[in-house]
Write a protein that binds this DNA or RNA. Structure first.
Length: 220
DNA sequence: GCGACAG
DNA sequence: ATCTTGTCGC
C-alpha cells in the first residue's frame, strides 16, 4: 500500500513538536464502525544500538486468520524523547506498511493516539500518513487521569486530560491489568473500544498487536 | 509452555 | 524500551 512521506524529517525536538502540532489538525475523530481487515503494528528494539524491526500483521477481523505479514529492519530515526516516541519508529513502520499487498481497513498501533501530551501520538501519525482509520493501545498509563475500571471484561473508565476525554482504560480480560485505548484517526472512541475488545477475546492485548510483537521479535 | 506480575 | 529470575496458574 502507498503511504505518504513525512518531509522534511525533523532534526530537533522543536521541529518534531511543530510537525505534531501541524498534523494534529488533520485528525478525524469519526469514521466507519466495522472493518474487514485489521492490521497490528509493533516494533522491537534489539542489540545495544538503535537497531529495530517493525512488523505488521494483517488479520481477517471476523475469523482472526492471518492474511499477510511483513517486516522491515532499520534504526531508530530520532532520539528518545517522551512524547516524540513516534519519530523513532515511524520510518520502519511506514517501510513495512508499504510492503503490504492488501490494504487494511483499520490499523491497531502499540502506543497512544489522542492520549498524548500534544494530542498526537503514534497512532495519529500512522493514521494521518496512511489516511486509514487507526487506534492506539497502550500498556501503561501515559497521560491524563482515570479511575481503575471494574474487574470484568469490557469494563472501562474515561481517561481525561485538560478537561477533555482522550481515551479509555479498558479491561480486556478479567483479573488482568487494563489497556489504554485512544483514537488515532478516522474512528470514534466507542468504536475503538469495541474493536480492541473484540480483537482481544483471549489475551490482554489485541490479537493483531500480539502477532506483530511476536513477528518483530522473531522475524523470518 | 505461555501469560501475568514483581521491581 | 531492554534484560533476567522466579512464582503462580490454565
Amino acid at each position: 500500500m502507498q503511504v505518504e512521506q513525512l518531509h522534511p524529517w525533523p532534526s530537533t525536538v522543536a521541529e518534531a513538536e511543530a510537525i505534531q502540532d501541524r498534523l494534529r489538525g488533520h485528525v478525524e475523530l469519526t469514521g466507519p464502525d466495522t472493518f474487514a481487515l485489521v492490521a497490528g503494528l509493533d516494533v522491537h528494539y534489539h542489540g545495544p544500538g538503535d537497531d529495530l524491526t517493525a512488523a505488521v500483521v494483517v488479520m481477517d477481523a471476523a475469523t482472526l486468520a492471518v492474511v499477510e505479514q511483513v517486516v522491515a529492519h532499520g534504526k531508530a530515526a530520532f532520539p528518545y524523547v517522551p512524547g516524540l516516541f513516534a519519530f523513532r519508529e515511524l520510518p520502519a513502520l511506514v517501510e513495512a506498511l508499504e510492503q503490504l499487498t492488501v490494504t487494511p481497513d483499520l490499523l491497531v498501533c502499540d502506543g497512544y493516539g489522542l492520549a498524548h501530551p500534544r494530542g498526537f501520538g503514534l497512532a495519529c501519525h500512522v493514521g494521518v500518513l496512511t489516511g486509514l482509520p487507526a487506534l492506539g493501545v497502550g500498556k501503561t498509563p501515559f497521560v491524563g487521569r482515570h479511575e481503575p475500571p471494574g474487574a470484568e471484561r469490557g469494563a472501562w473508565t474515561p481517561i481525561t486530560h485538560d478537561g477533555a476525554t482522550v481515551g479509555r482504560a479498558l479491561r480486556t480480560q478479567r483479573g488482568v491489568k487494563p489497556v489504554y485505548v485512544s483514537q488515532g484517526h478516522r474512528i470514534t472512541l466507542d468504536t475503538a473500544t469495541d474493536q480492541v475488545l473484540r480483537l482481544a477475546p483471549r489475551y490482554r492485548l489485541p490479537e493483531p498487536v500480539r502477532r506483530a510483537d511476536h513477528l518483530a521479535r522473531h522475524p523470518g
